[in-house]
Design a protein around this nucleic acid. Structure first.
Lengths: 342, 342
DNA sequence: CATCGTTACGCAATCGATTGCGTTGCCAGC
DNA sequence: GCTGGCAACGCAATCGATTGCGTAACGATG
């Protein structure tokens, strides 16, 4: 059974109504070819199109032009609260440009990612916004070499010149460390995100720089890498840290989920936060103010990240020769209840 | 610039390689028509297709067949934590059936919804999963009359026979009321969701039944309707309730966000939860265990809701004459820290 | 009047897959 | 040997929009 309306008007219907050929109808309705059709004919064609309720068939358009006015949004998992606001930002900018986005969830599985991207490309998506980049990412390199317009979100990739939109990780981590130092903390630990991601590496580097700049302890044992950007991995790393030492009074977590993992471990070990140990997260995902203690975190304007990524991609589709440029969005520290004076 | 790979093999390439017509290639590759082609030819065609890395062009397929193997997912807003797990459930069931889903966010705006659905339909989506139903919903009635396969999620619509997948609202609210009664509460209020939605109405009705069945006070003032399913509307309704009376010792909130609104009002009025007033939410959205107090709520298996909705829709696409059937998924009460003995 | 240039429009093909109908070849039965 | 039926395959059209090239008409100029 056909799911589509049985009698959608086509160019042919308009052509019959006006008494011209379908070529003329097509040209009259297309702003780029409209100058090839007489003004009176354009007027009559447009009127007929409106009267008949004509809408171009995007499928036919795609088949003929190999374009679809759609792009692919490649994210790890829409249930991660970080992504819905980004997706909404992307969507609003795409919509303003007459585009739509296909969302695919890779679950951080490279094989699944490849399959999903193949599927997107067979649907003629005109570019990809990718939020799943690893520092070394062969598939992205292939796509880039093939001329597929790409924009990365939240992470960079090495070796290829792809535009990306990220938060200002260095400024955010620096502000977090400065805030804790201002509260009198001198032994501050960092639960870093995976060092295979640019974000994990950048925030860890910024952490080391910040503690050095402030003359605080920068011994290597104060940085523990988490296997994933998740609460569970954060908890695991927090346990490792606290098993190894008892002198830490504050933690800068790679992101909010990792910070939640700290909360879990504090709970199981009777550690008071922020009385015994202060915690700062990163990202300001929803509902952090509802936690107890409300989480101090680095606010990232996620919706704006999405908007800028989509604009950047549309620019790249419009002008493929355009030099790749990246964007750092400003962050801000949101002080809530998880940090206190030492 | 074309975004697609420049040399994707077509049926024509296979036909040339094997020395048969493209019709034969098409039929050999299609399990439904394969019996019309000789076994040896099928073997040779399949080999050539594999060697050439042939993938059917979904755009061409859609244009010819008016089918797309895609469906539309119509939700209010992906940033509402309720929806990502539902979407993931939908996605996994669609994928198993060889389908993909287009997500559109209506922001609860009927005009936007109509425009987005038109757009989906012009892309030949084969059906719609709709999570935005109001009790009276002219657009859904039109779509149903036009034979568009539909499945509703979380809500019903009146007057048309459309299959839906909802949680067992009555059982959930009944369990919440019974739990509170078991703790000794006798004056229990209900902050109901909008009565223009089936969910709002069903939960309010179930509340009234439950308190009557348990011989508790059922005066009308104990039920306050929220204008939206949101934290802000929940807070507003909680203020109205507490302005009007001081004898309430427990609240059954229409959903978790409304319950968060209660938390907000308790905070601003120095009310202790659960010492002064207990609260039960509905849905068990993510991170409720991280709140202080951790929210007692009715757990809804969202992922399963999504899976069942997608299966139901695929069934309806496969067999349009299939009688509409609906599904109630079982819920369970999750007792955390927001409820205590009176 | 003839010629040239420009504008407006139509023809036919294309995109890549599917599908109804017709043709050909082969085999079995009379 | 002839006829009929069936299997395998090819032809041509279709889906709906775009696009290169050609043609016709008109106006301006010599």
């Amino acid at each position: 059974m056909k799911a589509n309306r049985p009698s959608a008007p086509t160019l042919r219907d308009i052509a019959e109504a006006v008494g011209v050929h379908t070529t003329t109808v097509s040209r009259a309705l297309n702003p780029r070819t409209q100058n090839q059709v007489g003004a009176d004919t354009v007027r009559r064609v447009r009127k007929a199109a409106k009267d008949l309720g004509y809408q171009p068939n995007p499928i036919a358009l795609s088949l003929r032009t190999s374009r679809s006015r759609t792009v692919g949004l490649v994210i790890p998992d829409i249930t991660n609260p970080l992504f819905p606001p980004i997706v909404r930002g992307i969507e609003s900018a795409l919509e303003a440009g007459g585009y739509s986005g296909w969302i695919v969830n890779t679950d951080n599985d490279p094989q699944r990612e490849r399959k999903l991207i193949e599927s997107l490309r067979s649907r003629q998506v005109e570019g990809l916004i990718v939020a799943t980049a690893r520092l070394e990412h062969p598939l992205l390199a292939e796509l880039h070499a093939a001329g597929v317009p790409l924009v990365l979100v939240n992470r960079r990739v090495e070796g290829i010149d792809v535009p990306c939109v990220t938060a200002d990780d260095a400024a955010g981590v620096s502000a977090a460390v400065a805030h804790l130092a201002g509260l009198g903390h001198t032994r501050i630990a960092h639960l870093a995100g995976p060092q295979t991601t640019s974000t994990g590496a950048a925030r860890a580097r910024a952490f080391r720089h910040a503690v050095r700049d402030l003359g605080l302890s920068d011994e290597p044992g104060l940085v523990v890498e988490c296997a994933q950007w998740s609460e569970e991995a954060g908890a695991s790393a927090a346990r490792s840290l606290l098993d190894a030492r008892t002198d830490v009074t504050a933690v800068v977590a790679g992101n909010d989920l990792i910070a939640l993992g700290c909360y879990d471990v504090f709970g199981e070990r009777g550690i008071d936060c922020p009385g015994d140990i202060s915690v700062v997260g990163f990202n300001d995902m929803p509902f952090l103010d509802k936690l107890r203690p409300p989480l101090t975190t680095v606010h990232v304007p996620h919706h704006d990240v999405g908007v800028e990524a989509a604009r950047m991609l549309l620019d790249g589709i419009e002008d493929p020769e355009r030099p790749a440029r990246s964007m750092l969005l400003p962050v801000s520290l949101v002080v809530r209840g998880s940090t206190a004076p030492r």
